[in-house]
């Protein structure tokens, strides 16, 4: 199995879940106003995309 594919899909799904939570704006944290879910979700989805693309290129 190609591990990059598994890691890629995992972070794509994780990133999508966080992005959805971030866009809905339903959750907040006591000590920060920053859109944590949105930024983290975008970074994770991007990382997942890169890993999945690397796996697909071969």
């Amino acid at each position: 199995m190609d591990l990059r594919k598994a890691i890629g899909y995992f972070f794509l799904l994780l990133g999508a879940a966080l992005l959805a939570a971030g866009i809905s704006g339903g959750y907040s944290a006591p000590l920060t106003q920053a859109p944590v879910n949105l930024y983290s979700g975008a970074a994770m989805a991007m990382f997942g995309g890169v890993m999945a693309a690397l796996a697909a290129r071969r």
Partner: peptide, 10 residues
């Protein structure tokens, strides 16, 4: 204190 639900799960 810093993570909203979602990131808290992560």
């Amino acid at each position: 204190q810093f993570y909203p639900n979602g990131m808290l799960g992560v």
